[in-house]
Design a protein around this nucleic acid. Structure first.
Lengths: 247, 247
DNA sequence: CTCTGCGTTTGATCCACGTCAACCCGCTTA
DNA sequence: TAAGCGGGTTGACGTGGATCAAACGCAGAG
């Protein structure tokens, strides 16, 4: 093990007490920082905020100051237009970032709402910019995070533009499954935090259509569904259902 | 006029010879830089590339090294999945950036194709990161550009998820119109650079549906359409058609 | 325990858009 | 000048998902 690794490993323990749970992903812990760099980073994310289910983390139209890293819990973001229509633009879980949309105009362009009791780290954006001018790996990591968000959005556009209802739901479930797995939870069994209506809004479908697709998957033995408790029984069939389907 | 303004004004003339036409927007000219900063920036964008209609600027799967600023011309980006389906994720015109999707994994995730003879500035990304560690306004501007892309994508998700065919086409045309206007062209009369099929792919519709929507708009006196030449005759009705429509 | 209410499921019907097919138009090539 | 061709338009018809409506089931309140 190199001395750099050792230093990082040591520093990891330090930062762990400050950011004990959201270590592994996204911005919270760019691997490979020096001890003093980590100390600065630790100061950066010192502001915490707790939210109860249903609370708004921020609203469209509010001034933008910070981005947020989810420490625990579950969020949705949505945008609405005058006539009352709205669209869920994403669901965020532990370790993921919220608020990147606000950077462009210094004003949030969507609402972020806790779907269960949650905790976030607020990261004042000007501090982050300052630090990332000093710490190159942090800068690069942040750019990657923003870029990943763009790639994710393209995936959703693909889904909304070309897939049919069952393919969309399959893609959605597989994505959730993979994200739970990456966090050390079961990829096969989990509780949905969002309603059928919210899933539908995200997928560009009505809740009835979502419900019917769940029922069909259950009938075909791909899933077991009880309320919001999902068990995936046949991942590979789900995958092939998602990816070609021209049968 | 402050001395800073004067300096910037002076430097503007210098950079103008290097980046004569794509000054005003996106990344090419963050206003307010000092003369020596502008000199560095000028060096950054020194690599040019010409493309003919149909040429690929980059392809999905290729390694990522640079982002590109469109100096002149018109591009589309699209993603494809195994089964042959594809989705146009955006159209880029003069002054807009291409390639932000590649930052996350160092690999391009979509294709960028010239829809007419075009010229781009290649901006090596590691250089850009280096410079933006030194020049705070550049850094901030770049972050805004990435964030704007995310906001734009959310707009497309909204469009794909909640709007019907005519609303989508109206939104698309109004967006194009506004972008032409911002570049000093007529917002009311312009030539589409893309086929009905490409519009359809972007809007999540089939080309026949796009064609019918054009015809209906023409019948109703909102547009005149001749091939790819569009004249907008009634902007306000187009806008209200796009935004509520629950009539 | 019942009552109330919201989220969900399920069924019947409708309609916007997709699909399939014919035809047209402007351009290129011979 | 004709022939071929790619892109665009238009029509007839089919269908996936929206809409409307009813009923279910779990949770919290009384």
């Amino acid at each position: 093990m190199s001395t750099r690794d050792a230093t990082a490993r040591l520093a990891f323990e330090v930062v762990k007490t400050a950011c004990s749970n959201c270590n592994l992903r996204e911005l919270c812990l760019p691997i490979g920082l020096e001890a003093d760099e980590l100390k600065k980073l630790d100061a950066l994310v010192s502001t915490r905020r707790r939210l109860k289910r249903g609370d708004y983390l921020y609203r469209a139209g509010q001034g933008f100051e910070s981005i947020y890293a989810v420490r625990s819990g579950f969020f949705k973001t949505d945008v609405l237009i005058e006539d009352g229509r709205d669209q869920v633009t994403g669901f965020q879980m532990t370790g993921e970032l919220l608020g990147l949309d606000g950077i462009s105009s210094e004003i949030h362009t969507c609402n972020a709402i806790a779907l269960e009791d949650s905790e976030v780290c607020a990261i004042p954006f000007s501090h982050l910019e300052g630090l990332s001018r000093q710490i190159q790996p942090l800068q690069h990591h942040f750019h990657q995070v923003m870029s990943r968000e763009i790639v994710r959005d393209h995936g959703v556009m693909m889904l909304l533009g070309t897939m049919r209802a069952e393919e969309r739901l399959a893609a959605f479930l597989l994505n959730l499954s993979q994200r739970f797995k990456a966090r050390g939870y079961s990829p096969a069994e989990f509780n949905l935090r969002m309603s059928r209506d919210e899933i539908g809004s995200y997928l560009g479908l009505k809740l009835e259509t979502v419900s019917r697709a769940f029922s069909r998957f259950q009938d075909e033995g791909l899933l077991s569904v009880h309320q919001r408790k999902i068990r995936i029984l046949n991942t590979s069939r789900l995958k092939q259902l998602m990816s070609h389907q021209r049968l």
